[in-house]
Design a protein around this nucleic acid. Sequence first.
DNA 1: CTCGTAAATGACGATATCGTCAGCACTGGC
DNA 2: GCCAGTGCTGACGATATCGTCATTTACGAG
Lengths: 222, 222
Amino acid sequence: MAADPESEPKPEPNRLVRRKMRTRAALVRAAQTFIAEGNLNAPILEITKAADVGMGSFYNHFQTKDELFQAAVDDALEAHGAVLDTLGEPSDDPVETFTRSFRLTGRLHRKAPQLSRVLLRSGTELITSDRGLAPRAIRDLRAAIDSGRFKVEDPELAMVVAAGALLGLGQLLLDRPDRDDAAATDQIAEDLLRMFGVSAAKANKLAHTPLPSLDDLPPPAP
Amino acid sequence: MAADPESEPKPEPNRLVRRKMRTRAALVRAAQTFIAEGNLNAPILEITKAADVGMGSFYNHFQTKDELFQAAVDDALEAHGAVLDTLGEPSDDPVETFTRSFRLTGRLHRKAPQLSRVLLRSGTELITSDRGLAPRAIRDLRAAIDSGRFKVEDPELAMVVAAGALLGLGQLLLDRPDRDDAAATDQIAEDLLRMFGVSAAKANKLAHTPLPSLDDLPPPAP
DNA sequence: CTCGTAAATGACGATATCGTCAGCACTGGC
DNA sequence: GCCAGTGCTGACGATATCGTCATTTACGAG
C-alpha cells in the first residue's frame, strides 16, 4: 500500500470499528489456516467456527467464499511485504536490497510456515501479483540493472527465475524438514547473483552477509 | 503365432475394457479442463456432463472428486513425461538431454495450454512429484554432475531452481500472451546452464541448438 | 440513563450436491 | 439367437451447504 502520511483516513478507530476489524481478521486468519491445509472446500460454517465467530458474521464481511479466500491470500502477501519492509533496513544499494529480500523470504518458510504454505498454495500467481515479493523484486532488479551491477537483458525473466526459485525452495523445505533452510537459501541466492552477472567473489560475500533476524515478527494478534 | 495368453500383461484389451478406459479418459480429460479453469468446486454432475457421460459412471471409476482430480494431475504429468520421452531422442550427453527437456517444457506452455495450466495449478507439487519433469530432471542433473560438466554442489537445489524457473516462465507466458515463448525459454535455459557452471559460449550454443518440433503430438484421442 | 445505530448471531427454509440403485445397453461366448 | 457379465445411466431420497433475517448484543452520543 502506498503511504499517505497527510491524508489520514483513520479518524480515530472507534472500538466499534476495531471490533469489526477483529472479526474480519479472525475470518481471514481462519481462512489462511484452511488454505495452508489445502482445505479449499471447507464449508462456511466450519470457517466461522474456526474463527470463533457466528455463522452470520461471515456475510457481514464477504459475499462469497472465494472473496474471503482472495482476501486471505492478499493478506498473506501484505504480511510478506511487511516482513520485507520491516526487516529490510533501506539500503541505497539495490543489489543488497534484492539479496536481503530474497534471503529473508527463504527463511520465512521455516519461521512462518503457515504464511509460507499460503504463498505456496497461491502458487505461481504470486509471481505476477502486485503485492508481496514480486513488485519489490522487480523494482530492485530494475534498479540493479540500471546501476550496471546486474548484467541482465530482461528484468521480467530474471524476476520469474528468482520467484520460481523461491517457490521451489519452499516446496523443497516442506518436503525435507531436516534441511538447513538458511544454507539452502543462501546457496541459491549466491547462484542467482552469479547468474545475474555478479562476480563469484562478490556473490559469495553478498549471500552470506549477516541478516536481520526474523524472530521479532508479530505472528499472533489479539 | 507364438502366443502365450496367460503371461501376457495385456490380455488383449477387449472392446469392453476399451470402452471402460474411454469413459475413464473422458472423465479425466473433463477434469483437466476444470482444473485448467480453476474450477475445483465443480459438481460431479457438471463434470460428467462435460465428459458426455452418465452421472453414475463417475462412481464406476472414482470414489471421490479429489480422487478424480488427483488422477487428472497424474495424467497430465504422465503426458508431460511422454512428450519428453517421445521428442527427446536419447543422447548420451546428459547436459544435452537436460537442456532439451527444459526447452521442450518451456515451449509446451504455448503448444499445449491446457496441459500447461494443469501443471501450473498443480503448482509447486510437481517440483517434487515422481512423475513428469522432476524425476527426469534429477536423473539428468545427477548424470551431468557426475560427468563433471555441471559444477553444482547440491542437485536438489539445482533441481528446484530449474523447476521453479519453468513454473515462473509458464505463469509469465500466461500473463503476457504476446511474449515469444521460445526466446524466453532459451534465454532462461542459457542462464541456468551458466549458473550450473557451463561456459558462456557452450551455454549459448546448447540453448539455441535446433529442437525437435512439438507439432507432432497427439493431443486428442477418440 | 436512554436511545439510535451498527455489528454479531444462529435458526430456518431454500437449494445444491451427493451417492445409491434398479434397470438398460453393449459385449463376448456358446 | 440366447445368456451371463460388465459397465452405463439417470431418477430419487438423503444430506450438506447456503444465505437470509429477526433478534440480540455492544457501542457511542447526548
